[in-house]
Design a protein around this nucleic acid. Structure first.
Lengths: 348, 348
DNA sequence: CTTAGCACTCGGAATAACGGAGTGCTAAAG
DNA sequence: CTTTAGCACTCCGTTATTCCGAGTGCTAAG
């Protein structure tokens, strides 16, 4: 799409005005706001062109214009000049991450941070197990037939689960089994561990090493679980969206909160955005999920030692201040990546 | 408060009608609905009395009557006949709890169950650490100066935390320390453990046993943490409240969701209800928390081996079907208690 | 190409009219 | 004394109407 300078400035100003006050922008208002002196009539002509191009439209004859989805799209792609983050905000954000090394808490904090700073909803895609590497497993005997299984992955995340067992295991049996398990599978991907376990189970159990049998019996169920292999989405500040005037219709909120509950749509969307490097922006219906029709989602992937493992993002109304939200998401992703990195581990 | 039979029936019918359709009930409607044949005029006279007693009121002159808070109170205290749970629902609820022994998941399920069955919000007060007994601690070495600490309490709940340490500990040091710790403190309350730790720390460190020093250094931080000692509230199905017509004003929802976020009010309320045996019902402003003004909360405590350790409940509009919600809350509390009990442990 | 002028459109606020549901009161009937 | 019928009255919610202002599109002149 090609626009002359004047049309661009006009469109930019219009969108900025609309993002600010949420009112359709008329030719007179726009003319007054512009640096160059133009009459409302001239502005009207340009606006008419922009409308023909599908970038803006009027809700009705005698109202001003508001950006269309394509208008927003053009705006963020070509017109937006992202303002750098306020020094104060940046400091706040850094503070939030300092002195925290637990990856799970870091993710929570990232999500909260996003919602607090933007006043919209913060969201974090938590990397699925399958992609991370197995580091360590530990078994703790709780009761005669209950074993607490602790799984540590190389990105530092910890999962635990109480597992009922068929027979009672002695403490040293469990220690042996864990050691064995750690030696055999340490450093391989969880998907491989799973595969390996399945193979072992195929074999006749008599052939199996006694320790391996124990480990299998206990850990097997941990890896059986479908849920644990998948990704998960963490959400914060949903309640902020209740304050957003653009979403103040109950039905819209219902659709949205429904999506928040099932999380599937969010998951898909964030997963898509993980495959792109840098900021992704989904505007209104672009995302393809009806539940997000009136929303925009701004996301950025984060990494662990250079490998992208998840996404952080903000969900807000389409009429959001992209120039403010984008740097917040960007910086959050960077800070999170930094805090997760092994270097940070070693420095602590 | 004393009412004659007719007035009682009338009040009950009125409240039931109002709970059903949410419309103010007029004398004609009420007269038609009553078994006994009474003219609207007579009904009006009785209603007038009930209004004088403060049990009902009209929103305006030419509308029917709706129950006041005191009306609801009288209703649940004296008029309500709780209908036993539908066989089908009961079955569903039992199914939800079967085959689950992990206490944390049980609490989650209880909360979800409450929201699913009632279509309101389900809430569970998770017992604070301080009240439960210390069973077991385990240390797992993650990196040179990071130790994963796992705390198991006698009610089967597991907490873990990655703790940065001042120096590096060898695996066997950690095992020794854990064993020692478990022997010294096993079976005492977490509050006592905390107290014991503080005392030990007072002493000159040179005097301390080497192993104890390790345990202290690692576990100390776990017990330092203020947050972990407190209670927590788990909430499900908040989004259901968006569908409730009585709460469809954005500001009300804002107040409510704000309370859900901070959780302090909920916590206080549930904590109060834990000290009462059996069902508690807070109607509208009775709770004393402005955020819950338009809501009622129905709660029941649950126990672990006979000792009350928490509360489950439902948060819905004041105009809710108490006769349906009450048994659901009641049964959930019972099922949860049963599933948590040690007997269930042993049987598994 | 830009601008002034003008007729036209449309939504939103304000106002008025109206019908319905419900009440309270009174007086008569049981 | 209680119950009932009748009636005047109140007030809400709806609908219709008007009116104003903001904004547009078009045309013709600069």
């Amino acid at each position: 799409m090609k626009l002359n300078d004047r049309a661009e400035t006009l469109l930019r100003t219009l969108i900025e005005l609309y993002i600010n006050d949420g009112q359709p922008v008329g030719s007179r208002t726009l003319a007054r706001k512009l640096k160059v002196n133009l009459s409302p009539a001239t502005v009207r002509n340009v606006m008419s062109d922009l409308e023909d191009l599908g970038l803006i439209h009027s809700p009705h004859t005698s109202a001003g214009r508001i950006p269309t989805q394509q208008g927003y799209r053009f705006f963020v792609d070509s017109l937006l000049q992202v303002r750098p983050l306020e020094q104060l905000t940046l400091k706040e954000m850094q503070d939030k991450f300092s002195y925290e090394r637990d990856p799970q808490l870091l993710l929570t904090k990232a999500s909260e941070l996003l919602s607090q700073v933007t006043h919209f909803a913060g969201v974090v895609l938590i990397p699925g197990q399958r992609s991370s590497l197995f580091r360590q497993i530990e078994f703790v005997r709780l009761a005669s037939q209950r074993v607490l299984t602790i799984l540590v992955t190389d990105d530092g995340r910890v999962q635990n689960r109480v597992i009922p067992t068929d027979r009672s295991y002695a403490a040293n049996e469990l220690v042996e089994a864990a050691n064995f398990f750690n030696q055999v599978y340490g450093g391989t991907s969880l998907a491989d561990v799973r595969r390996g376990l399945l193979e072992e189970m195929q074999k006749d159990s008599d052939e199996m090493h006694r320790i391996m049998a124990t480990a299998l019996a206990v850990a097997g169920k941990l890896f059986d679980d479908e849920d644990d292999g998948g990704d998960a989405v963490m959400l914060s500040g949903e309640e902020n969206l209740l304050n957003v005037p653009d979403l103040c219709q109950i039905e819209k909120l219902q659709k949205l909160f429904d999506a928040f509950k099932t999380k599937q749509d969010l998951l898909d969307l964030l997963d898509r955005s993980m495959k792109v490097s840098g900021i992704s922006i989904f505007i209104g219906e672009e995302s393809g999920y009806r539940s997000l029709d009136d929303c925009s989602v701004v996301t950025a992937p984060y990494d662990h030692d250079g490998e992208i493992i998840g996404t952080v993002g903000v969900i807000g109304p389409t009429r959001m201040s992209y120039e403010e939200v984008i740097p917040v998401v960007d910086v959050t992703a960077r800070l999170l990546s930094g805090a997760l990195s092994s270097t940070a581990d070693r420095l602590e």
